[in-house]
Write a protein that binds this DNA or RNA. Structure first.
Length: 287
DNA sequence: CTCCAGGTTCCGG
DNA sequence: CCGGAACATGGA
């Protein structure tokens, strides 16, 4: 048992950061890197099996993030963000292993969350180390690099197969060193990541936020774009990616990553409740 | 059947 | 620099 105040395990594991956790009764099972663990929340405590993985789990779940300070740094007058943050109480930005985060988000483009999950689990099952109990580690760059594009396409990867394979081969060959990102600024790290095939601004920022600890990273996907458009710029004709990026950095500040994750998840919650609440990108009351 | 999904890349103006 | 289109697959 480890202390986990202001934390919501189910919310965190279902917030679209990692895609491989499986419900197991009131708890969850999954691979944390190459360690199989079971997690179960009991109030402000977290039961971890095996107990020897407790420190690993606490780090992965970012239980040390000081949420009060993070929320205090949000723009004071932003009622939308305050509402989203309230709805997402207990959500943490994970510290995921670099490679599986990068790889899963390369496979995420133009895919629903359920599809990303299916692809991730299939890659693990076929090519990942068997951890017992039906759990598998994410296959290493070297393992994937040895496969053919056809192997990957048969995991329902579609056109993403080429990108995943290309990136896996660059890492396996030592032509791209993840450790080299550690000392870089967010901007420099993003630039380096974007040299990889299948990694554009969105995927790069996901990796920076969910794996590299850059809490100012702000991935802009279709959901965030809709939210920003609807809540912050309902009357503006066109919103370029660059404009939104600058706005987010200025408005949400150094903890923008948390704001982003709250807005992302909130938009999806609201949409489930009422599909018309978050509108399509088409502007204007002409309908 | 049509539309869309946590985008990236390439191409023509 | 900008808008558009191609890219695979499956669920709603």
């Amino acid at each position: 048992m480890i202390p986990a105040p202001d934390f919501d395990l189910a919310l965190t594991l279902h917030s679209g950061q990692a895609f491989h956790w499986e419900a197991d009764g009131p708890g969850f099972r999954g691979a944390l890197g190459d360690v199989a663990v079971r997690l179960e929340q009991r109030g402000d405590l977290l039961a971890v099996e095996p107990e020897s993985a407790s420190a690993l789990v606490a780090h992965y779940l970012a239980l040390d993030h000081r949420m009060a300070e993070i929320h205090a740094a949000f723009p004071p007058g932003d009622a939308v963000l305050a509402e989203a943050a309230r709805a997402c109480h207990g959500l943490r930005l994970l510290r995921q292993p670099f490679w599986e985060c990068l790889a899963t988000f390369i496979t995420s483009s133009m895919k629903q969350v359920a599809h990303i999950r299916a692809i991730s689990l299939e890659l693990r099952r076929r090519y990942g180390a068997d951890l017992g109990g039906g759990l598998h580690a994410y296959p290493s760059p070297a393992r994937l690099a040895a496969l053919s594009e056809e192997d990957l396409r048969s995991c329902a990867l579609g056109y993403r197969a080429r990108n995943l394979l290309g990136t896996a081969r660059l890492l396996a060959a030592g032509r791209f060193d993840p450790a080299g990102l550690a000392g870089l600024t967010r901007e420099a790290a993003e630039k380096a990541l974007r040299t990889l095939p299948g990694v554009g601004p969105k995927v790069a920022n996901c990796v920076l936020l969910f794996a590299c600890g850059h809490l100012d990273a702000f991935p802009i996907d279709v959901w965030i774009e809709r939210s920003l458009r609807e809540f912050y710029f309902p009357r503006r004709r066109k919103l370029t990616a660059e404009f939104l990026r600058r706005f987010a950095a200025r408005h949400f500040g150094p903890q923008g990553g948390y704001a982003q994750q709250y807005l992302f998840h909130y938009a999806r919650i609201v949409r489930r409740r009422d599909p018309r609440r978050i509108s399509e990108p088409s502007p204007g009351p002409s309908a």
